[in-house]
């Protein structure tokens, strides 16, 4: 197990190099010119400005040279400077990462807790109205685009009912708490600032639910299916024959096994969360990596695009690693080998 882990961690840097190279090549193959967004369309006819900009951003060199220079910087821990924000990409990423992490982790918790709960409910009441409603709810969650559900949620819960605040991470007049973790909810709590905490939490609810709904959809269907599989297993009949409460049979016996495939799917649903976060962040004006990525792509901000992609790739690799570790912890049959 230990050796396996070391091996898994050791390959991560190499995979990262591959990801960065791929994104670099794809970005340079784009049949559009980032100069437009750097100097503005008006100055494109001005050869002095264009030449200066090209020299400034290193775009005057051939692509292989650009690549080598870029990689040299990467090895020194420099992901370049964003064309648009004019700040180091690493700085931008660090700035925006907590917002996205806070959103996705809340969404993941909502998705997993809600998904497991709904799946158990559907399996225990298989083929009843409860099961059908759960199926419909799950289907909606995984098929409704996040921007649609988000806009609908904002319209109903914010504009109409005014139960929840509008877009953003905080009320417009509130100051964000001094950064400790970058999670507004956590930082506000650490500072003992309850009003900021409530504001941050209330702002978080709707986007996290919109994003988590899709995960509920995926997880609940899987939990239902694997729980039904487990119900037909002999050990469940044995547990019943031994007089165990039905609740114990489901929660302590069957669910424990049914959650094994769920661990894998939760890892996978992280991919869904990353793409979903892009859409959700735009709808909710959430200042995270998703909106940063969209801005960067629209303006062909090469360093920013590569930086966001690399971070997404890293997140994916780490999630896979965590998934495998979690699986090994949960399944004693794997732990040994």
């Amino acid at each position: 197990m230990k050796r396996y882990l070391v091996r898994r961690i050791a390959v991560i840097p190499f995979l990262m190099l591959g990801i960065i190279t791929m994104v670099f090549i794809v970005s340079r193959l784009t049949p559009a010119d980032p100069l437009v967004s750097i100097v503005g369309a008006r100055n494109l006819n001005n050869p002095t400005i264009v030449a200066a900009a090209k020299a400034r951003w290193g775009l005057d060199q051939s692509i292989p040279i650009q690549y080598l220079k870029y990689m040299k910087n990467v090895f020194q821990g420099d992901l370049g400077t964003s064309f648009t924000t004019r700040k180091p990409v690493l700085h931008d990423l660090w700035d925006r990462l907590p917002a996205t992490l806070e959103l996705t982790s809340f969404a993941l918790v909502i998705g997993v807790v809600g998904g497991v709960g709904l799946g158990v409910l559907a399996a225990r009441h298989r083929n009843t109205i409860i099961d059908h409603v759960a199926r419909f709810f799950a289907l909606l969650g995984s098929s409704l685009p996040a921007f649609w559900a988000g806009l609908l949620g904002l319209y109903v819960l914010y504009s109409r009912l005014e139960w929840l605040p509008g877009p953003g991470r905080l009320d417009p007049r509130a100051d964000p708490p001094a950064r400790i973790t970058g999670f507004f909810t956590v930082d506000a709590l650490l500072h003992g600032d309850m009003s900021t905490f409530w504001s941050a939490l209330r702002h978080l609810i709707l986007p996290a639910c919109v994003l988590g709904w899709g995960v509920i959809g995926i997880v609940s269907r899987l939990v239902r299916a694997s729980l039904l599989d487990e119900f037909s297993m002999e050990y469940v009949r044995v547990a019943r024959a031994m007089g165990l409460r039905e609740r114990t049979v489901v929660n302590n016996h069957a669910l424990r096994n049914a959650l094994l495939p769920t661990i894998t799917i939760v890892g996978f649903s992280f991919a869904y969360l990353i793409t979903g976060a892009v859409l959700t962040e735009i709808v909710f004006s959430w200042p995270g990596l998703g909106s940063y990525a969209v801005e960067a792509s629209r303006k062909l901000d090469f360093p920013a695009v590569i930086g966001v992609s690399a971070l997404g790739g890293l997140a994916f690799l780490l999630t896979n690693l965590i998934t495998d570790i979690a699986y090994a912890i949960a399944d004693p049959r794997i732990r040994l080998s």
Binding site: E234, Y235, V238, A239, N257, D331, P332, R333
Partner: peptide, 10 residues
């Protein structure tokens, strides 16, 4: 079948 009548993860 004692192979299947015990819970594998407990």
């Amino acid at each position: 079948d004692p192979m299947t009548s015990l819970n594998p993860v407990l």
